[in-house]
């Protein structure tokens, strides 16, 4: 029982690591662009959880500042990512990563 209770920062870190892993798995396995984009968001959020946890551990709000920055940057990335999806959709009428093979080799 000792590893389940009491809750320590390490619990949060493991949670964050697993969430990161889910995000990575999503990016690697899903060919649907939207899902890939959402998986990227999951990865960034997992990191945010780590930052907040470390902030709590160190008793220093620098981590919170970083998280706010990351939120803004994630918004910017989502914006550009969705724009790319729209541009692609105009060319192909599909949003599947598998369809874009002209550059391989």
């Amino acid at each position: 029982m000792e590893i389940f209770y009491p809750i320590t920062p390490a619990h949060y870190l493991v949670l964050s690591a697993v969430l990161f892993g889910i995000g990575v798995a999503g990016v690697l396995s899903r060919k649907n662009l939207f899902v890939a984009l959402m998986s990227l968001e999951l990865m960034l959020n997992a990191v945010n959880l780590s930052f907040v946890t470390f902030s709590r551990v160190n008793g220093d709000v620098t981590g919170h500042v970083v998280v706010l920055f990351v939120v803004a940057i994630a918004a910017a990335e989502a914006c550009v990512g969705l724009a790319i999806v729209i541009a692609l959709y105009r060319l192909k009428e599909k949003v599947d990563l598998d369809l874009f093979k002209s550059l391989q080799g």
Binding site: L44, V47, E77, V80, I84, A87, L88, L91, F100
Partner: peptide, 22 residues
């Protein structure tokens, strides 16, 4: 973006770029 190769380059660059940022 009217060229397929260019848009595809952007997509690939974006996906791996953000992945790396993570």
């Amino acid at each position: 973006r009217v060229q397929e190769r260019s848009t595809e380059a952007a997509l690939k660059y974006f996906m791996l770029g953000v992945f790396a940022s993570g």
